[in-house]
Design a protein around this nucleic acid. Structure first.
Lengths: 343, 343
DNA sequence: ACGCATGCTGTTACCGCTAACATATCGCAG
DNA sequence: CTGCGATATGTTAGCGGTAACAGCATGCGT
């Protein structure tokens, strides 16, 4: 590596360097760079020129320590690889865009312990707020959240007691609604296919709501199949084959997410089954992927974008409601029957 | 909100609080909490107990300023929603796991200006290293990277000149290889379908390599179709229909990514076309999704996990090669012919 | 007995920046 | 001319930790 043609980067620059280069005090440089307080136009220009020429990048660590203000928002989610959280992130980023706040992502892989340590790590950077998925946390994590003294928003789920605020949907209700729609369409031999992850509380709650509604109609699941890991599309295919082989009487397949539902749908179509006449299917999430499938899978959208948007608004303090903290905002997903529930 | 039953969190705790609560100096508390230096067992326990009881969370801002050490690695990528970067992230996280380093993600949405400002923002937190996608950056961004005085790893692509280190594949070569395989299989009327994004340099380079190889065989693309935004699966379907309608003689469809390729494949199968006899298809990336498709799409994996792993190793300073900075590491993707190229 | 390494704890001086206050300088009403 | 508010800049004192070094026992070889 040849050294760059300009100034060699001997050590990192400080305000003092810019101050010396422009002949004013550090304080004035600080004011110019933060665009705060009164500075004469001539000084401002001189300082900006010097900063640009030197390639000065301010040290936010020192700035944050001195000002006791950090423009970071901790976002803690279980995973990035399943289409749902990236969209929540989009909602958050878009809303935070013009607030000066910046999201910082931490991933837990659905492990409560990992969540706890990620949270600890992020809190030690003293963020302005925390957005965290789910209502289930370790006792220690809950205590940290409560003590942090900053706005906390638990997202995705509202079936439980939040530490501070919550934005999400009722997964129990979502499961119930889907069951009711399926029953109303005349299906009676219903199977469930989903994740095995013991820590996917939202999938669990949907199943609970689903079974409640079945029970109310005097029905119960005729079969169930669980998976973990691997290609969701492929798993959906394999699980569907397993269920249909084991329980040929099944006339409806309820999947815990759209990806495995899509796999199941492809399998059924491949087998030449009559969908939705002979057999119906439904997933959950309303992922965009489904638009490209040969037939549209029934699903419920999880209001992901909206959840991100509202959570960010609460943190940024610009959410409509005037109350300070402690609100639970329920969003209502719409059921899209697609082409895989008859009627 | 009722106040928690224990101590009210009046203000955030400092080392001093723990120090007073345990009757030792702040320095000793600091030593205990960082597990550094010699501390007697009895003192250690007393301090830990106090810290735990108070719910003390250290202030890394102050710590970083004092120690001039920050355990963060900036990771700057164009997007999170397309399956490829999440997997790179996994490689990075896994490798950084036991180094004490922590990745922090910034997303640019394929905008060079946004990349520049995200980079500026992250550098102002003085990270220990930067992992950034691609070799194309604004002049200002390149200057910042060069001046930062920390290890920089540009990932995904090696067709160009890196600021410091680079880990990736040659997309030009990848395009060329795929073209050669297609020609060898006897296809002659080849169309390209891909993103229009002017800033997806890697897709562009693949296409360039692809066309080079075609030209060398005396061929050229008989049609091309571009898209941007929307559901990739659906777009693949629509574009494929458009191309096949417009240019019925086409016997091979080369897609710039697997997702649109999958859409195209589903369309072809739906239309009852003979794949790969009558028409062949290929994508790029080797995404796991493909495993669930009725037929396996030909593709080339982009070595995503490996790229993340190696990049993180370089930052962590534990990469095999003894050299200090400035290395270009080329990875070699394998071509998977799947079921959509004949022969 | 002495010297010296070793274990444990405390003291001091910053890290780079900003809040708060102090200090010019100037225009202009009284 | 005086006084006072606005404008523009500088000075001081931290923010909450940690590096570096300074005590002060204690143990041990000689």
């Amino acid at each position: 590596m040849s050294k760059p043609p300009t100034l060699e980067p001997r050590r990192t620059l400080t305000l003092r360097d810019v101050s010396e280069a422009s002949g004013v005090s550090e304080m004035t440089v600080s004011r110019v760079l933060r665009n705060r307080g009164d500075v004469s136009d001539s000084t401002r220009e001189r300082v900006q020129e010097a900063a640009r020429r030197l390639g000065y990048v301010p040290n936010k660590i020192a700035g944050a320590l001195a000002s006791q203000r950090v423009n970071l928002v901790a976002v803690i989610i279980p995973s990035l690889s399943n289409m749902v959280f990236p969209e929540v992130m989009t909602g958050i980023s878009d809303t935070l865009e013009d607030t000066g706040l910046q999201p910082v992502v931490g991933v837990t892989n659905y492990s409560p312990d990992r969540e706890e340590s990620v949270l600890y790590e992020m809190l030690s950077w003293r963020p302005s707020g925390v957005i965290i998925a789910g209502l289930e946390h370790t006792d220690a994590a809950r205590a940290m959240l409560a003590q942090a003294g900053i706005p906390i928003v638990e997202i995705m789920d509202i079936d439980g007691t939040p530490v501070d605020s919550a934005v999400g949907i009722s997964h129990r209700r979502a499961g119930r609604q889907m069951a009711e729609a399926i029953i109303a369409a005349g299906y009676r031999n219903i199977a469930f296919l989903g994740t095995m992850m013991p820590h996917d509380h939202r999938a669990r709650k949907r199943l609970e709501g689903f079974e409640d509604a079945l029970a109310k109609a005097g029905l119960s699941l005729v079969d169930r199949e669980f998976y973990s890991g691997g290609s969701a599309l492929l798993k959906g295919r394999e699980m569907t084959e397993a269920v249909l082989t084991r329980s040929p009487q099944v006339d409806f397949l309820y999947y815990s997410n759209d990806m495995i539902g899509a796999g199941g749908l492809l399998y059924c179509l491949h087998k030449g089954l009559d969908v939705p006449g002979q057999i119906g299917l439904a997933g959950f999430n309303g992922v965009e992927l489904l638009d490209g499938l040969p037939r549209k899978l029934a699903t419920m959208d999880a209001c992901r974008l909206e959840i991100g948007r509202v959570a960010a608004e609460i943190i940024a303090g610009k959410h409509s409601s005037g109350t300070i903290g402690g609100e639970v905002i329920e969003l209502f997903p719409t059921l899209q029957k697609g082409d895989t529930i008859r009627g």
